[in-house]
Amino acid sequence: MADPILTVSDLRAGYGATEILRGLSMSVAPGEIVAVLGSNGVGKTTLNMVLSGVVKAASGSISFLGEDVTNHAPGDIVSRGLVHVPEGRKIFPNMTVRDNLVLGSYRRGKAARAANLDKVFATFPRLRERISQLAGTLSGGEQQMLAIGRGLMAEPKLLILDEPSLGLSPLLVEEMFTLVRRINADGLAVMLVEQNVVQSLEVASRAFILENGVFALQGKASDLAASDELRKAYLGM
């Protein structure tokens, strides 16, 4: 495996006196999809926020592209190419589709903004059709496309997708995971943070199962998909 672009070592973090992440270590290699899986409340969003600089690490380290970025400011982390598409989309509802996308290049990607817009519209033709529409009037699936497209406008080296299938219909969930594959096919590394265990393991090369702030299981996605322990814990089988 190539040298990781992201390395997390013994990461601990929380809120006040409450420790949420209890010594996590993981990595993401160039061009791979890594899934971080677990139910609500196990620390997935906290991990994303620490990686993005929004929540400070209590201890441990985060290395991105060979440089220590532990507790760097969020703007600096985005400028380096680590881009987080948050849970719940967090689009600007009273702004147009185009303006939401342009905001994605505020910190990174300004020079190629026009070309990147064309790339996003090639990936999401529906967004081109709705370019002047207010983002708040889009469907849930279209809003998720917009959130991901906004992340792509920053020319990420690593794209963290936090619960991209949340709240979508089964048909749109299938479409979303197909989209993750398509984005990754261009060589973009993706960290997929999800509750949807089955489909995430189908698209990922490796996976980490988060339980109560620790990785209870980790390994090749295909091995975890066949794991009796995982099937009993998450699939009820």
Rank of each mutant, 00 (worst) to 15 (best):
G219Y: 00
Q218Y: 05
I209N: 02
V190G: 03
E202Q: 15
M191R: 08
V193Q: 06
L188Y: 06
E202R: 14
L192C: 11
V197A: 07
N212G: 06
V197I: 13
G219M: 03
Q218K: 10
L217C: 05
I183W: 04
G187P: 05
N212M: 08
A207Q: 08
R206L: 13
A189N: 07
V193E: 04
I183A: 05
A185F: 01
L210I: 09
A189T: 03
N212Q: 14
I209T: 01
V193F: 07
Q199W: 07
V197C: 04
V198R: 15
K220P: 06
A185M: 02
L192T: 11
K220Y: 02
N196V: 12
G219H: 01
E211T: 11
A207F: 12
D186C: 01
V190C: 01
N212I: 06
V193A: 08
L210E: 08
V190H: 02
L188E: 08
L210A: 11
N212H: 12
L217P: 01
F208D: 07
A216W: 03
N184C: 09
G219S: 03
L188S: 12
A207D: 10
I209D: 02
Q199L: 15
A207P: 11
M191P: 04
L201W: 08
V198W: 01
G219K: 00
I183K: 02
F208W: 13
L192A: 12
M191T: 09
M191C: 15
L210Y: 08
L210V: 10
G219L: 04
Q199Y: 12
L217D: 03
A185V: 00
E211V: 14
I183H: 04
N212E: 14
